[in-house]
Simulated scan of single mutants.
Amino acid sequence: MATQLQTAMEGLIAVFHSYSGKEGDKYKLSRGELKNLLQGELADFLSASKDPCVVEKIMHDLDENQDGEVDFQEFVVLVAALTVACNEFFIDAVESSRKAAKKV
């Protein structure tokens, strides 16, 4: 039986490969594939941004080797950064809730 972390890792790999390879290299995400992945899997994050160029900016930031594609390692950097941000948001929300409860 797989652990929670193993299941999460398998999920990341499966999501990446379900979007990669439709255009060009099957082990990388093209701009269009990255956009489809972000819209399909992280729509809430995209809608929170009011910047119409957010996908292009993400692509530019992730594409460390500047080959116009995002490989799995570059994709994991995005997932890790978003996960850290969500964790920080959660911690801040819990701390705010505790402070508010103490005042009551």
Rank of each mutant, 00 (worst) to 15 (best):
V104I: 10
G21F: 01
L82T: 11
K50Q: 15
K50P: 00
A85Q: 15
A80L: 10
A101R: 10
N87V: 12
L42M: 13
D51I: 07
V94M: 09
F16D: 04
L38Y: 07
L78W: 07
C53N: 12
C53V: 05
V104T: 10
Q39M: 11
S97I: 09
Q39L: 12
A48L: 14
F16A: 11
Q73V: 09
L78T: 11
E41T: 08
G32K: 09
C86E: 10
L62C: 04
S18R: 13
K50E: 15
G24M: 03
E41Y: 11
A14C: 06
E23Y: 02
A80R: 12
Q4R: 09
D25Y: 06
V104Y: 15
M59E: 00
G24K: 00
S30P: 03
N65L: 06
A14K: 09
L42S: 04
D51P: 01
K50R: 15
G21V: 05
K26L: 10
Q4G: 11
V79Q: 06
N65K: 14
C86A: 13
D44H: 07
L62W: 04
L38R: 13
G24Y: 00
L12C: 08
L5F: 08
E23P: 12
G32Q: 10
K28P: 04
P52R: 03
A81N: 09
V79F: 05
V15M: 08
F89R: 13
K57P: 00
A93E: 15
L62H: 01
A93W: 07
A85D: 13
A93R: 06
V94Y: 04
M9D: 00
Y27Q: 10
E23S: 13
H60W: 03
S49N: 15
E88D: 15
A48E: 14
G21D: 02
S49Q: 14
M1E: 04
L38K: 08
E64P: 07
E41D: 05
K22G: 03
Q39A: 12
T83V: 09
A2Y: 02
C53L: 12
A85G: 11
H60A: 04
F72V: 05
A100Y: 01
L5S: 04
Q73H: 07
D51E: 08
D67E: 03
E64S: 12
D51C: 01
V55A: 05
N65T: 05
F90A: 13
A85P: 04
Q73L: 06
K103M: 02
E69P: 01
L37M: 00
F75S: 12
S18P: 06
V77S: 10
L42E: 05
E74W: 09
S18I: 08
K28V: 06
L37S: 04
V94Q: 05
G11Y: 06
H60C: 08
E56F: 02
A80M: 13
G32T: 10
G11L: 05
D63R: 00
L12F: 13
S97G: 06
V84C: 10
V70N: 02
T7V: 05
A81K: 11
E33I: 02
K99H: 02
E33P: 00
H60Y: 03
A81Y: 11
E23A: 10
Q73S: 14
G11N: 15
V76S: 06
L37Y: 00
G11C: 11
A81S: 09
E95Q: 14
S97N: 04
E23M: 03
R98F: 12
K50L: 12
V15A: 15
E33Y: 07
D61H: 13
V76W: 07
K22D: 00
